[in-house]
Simulated assay, not measured.
Amino acid sequence: MIVVTAPTGNIGGRLVQDLLDVGAPVRVVARDPARLAPGVVEKVEVVRGSHGDPAVAAEAFAGAAAVFWLVLADPLSTSLDEAYSGFTRPVLDALAAVPRVVGISALGRGTPFAGQAGHVTATLAMDDLVAATGVPYRALTMPSFMDNVLWQLAPITRQGVLYGPTAPDLSAPTVAARDIAATAARLLRDDTWTGFEEVPVLGPEDLTQNEMAAVIADVLGRPVRYQQVPGEAYKEDMLRAGRSEAIAQGLLDMAVAKNEGLDNGVARTPEWSTPTTFRQWCLDVLKPAADA
């Protein structure tokens, strides 16, 4: 039995389907099972509730061969420690009792910027908590997601502008959520690994924001340019969107660290390279969304 937390999200939802496609038995932890993809609820075991609740985690993880661990930071959290490690601490005993855990993490460990990188710093601290229990743990470390471009769908289609805090000429990796899910599915079904390791998951190319805007323009057949948002304006946007001060500041700190090279500290290798190019992601995901 493989347990998937956050099964209604972009990564978790794809992971559930990937596992079902190969006949793996799946149990999901969901606050609202009605949000599962159509047809999924009949094929999986469902434990209702939050995977940060010790009673829910104990029930969900019982008898599991592996657990997929993903923490979505509460946008109203008063601190990043509360959002990540605070969510995880109550269920460490339940996690420690399973044979293997695969978690969602971030690039940056070992770089000069990792200690002041907001959400990344908090995520790495959470990884250390899980690893300290002794449970075999693979932390999937990612750069920014291609799928985050969907947050900019309205300005892309209405204004021809892709906005963001990233420096326009910084060449950096990205990754598609579907490739993260595929990597997680492979590791969750592999019972041969032990210990704690980080597993970088990088798309096949580095692109600048200007280059990404040009790809979007070519795929959509309309002019699109990139415009960098000043850091404080970016934070103000996050506050207006309902994030707490701590969460908004953490997002800004992460963006600053990425601009300083946080995501560029790992060399791409065949082992750490995923297949989906940004152009292919735009064709498969962004264009259908823009045309809808």
Rank of each mutant, 00 (worst) to 15 (best):
V29S: 00
R31S: 06
D32H: 14
P33A: 12
L36S: 14
L36C: 07
A37M: 09
A37W: 10
P38I: 13
G39K: 11
G39F: 11
V40L: 06
V40A: 12
V40N: 09
V41F: 03
V41S: 14
V41M: 10
E42G: 10
E42N: 09
K43S: 05
V47H: 04
R48G: 05
R48Q: 14
R48P: 09
R48F: 05
S50Y: 06
S50L: 06
H51F: 08
H51R: 02
D53I: 02
D53M: 00
A55I: 09
A55G: 11
A55F: 04
V56F: 00
V56T: 12
A57R: 12
A57C: 08
A57G: 03
E59G: 01
E59R: 15
E59C: 09
F61N: 05
F61R: 10
F61D: 02
A62V: 12
A62P: 01
G63E: 11
G63Q: 13
A64W: 13
A64K: 15
A64T: 14
A64L: 13
A65L: 09
A65F: 04
A65S: 15
A65P: 03
A66D: 01
V67A: 08
V67W: 12
F68M: 01
F68D: 00
W69G: 00
W69Q: 11
L70G: 04
L70V: 15
V71K: 00
V71T: 13
V71P: 01
V71N: 00
V71C: 04
L72M: 06
D74G: 00
D74T: 03
D74V: 03
P75T: 05
P75S: 11
S77K: 13
S77F: 04
S77M: 01
S79V: 13
S79L: 12
S79P: 04
D81S: 07
D81H: 15
Y84K: 09
S85G: 14
S85T: 12
G86L: 13
T88Y: 04
T88G: 05
R89A: 11
V91H: 01
L92I: 10
L92N: 09
D93T: 15
A94C: 11
A94Q: 13
A94K: 14
A96D: 06
A96V: 12
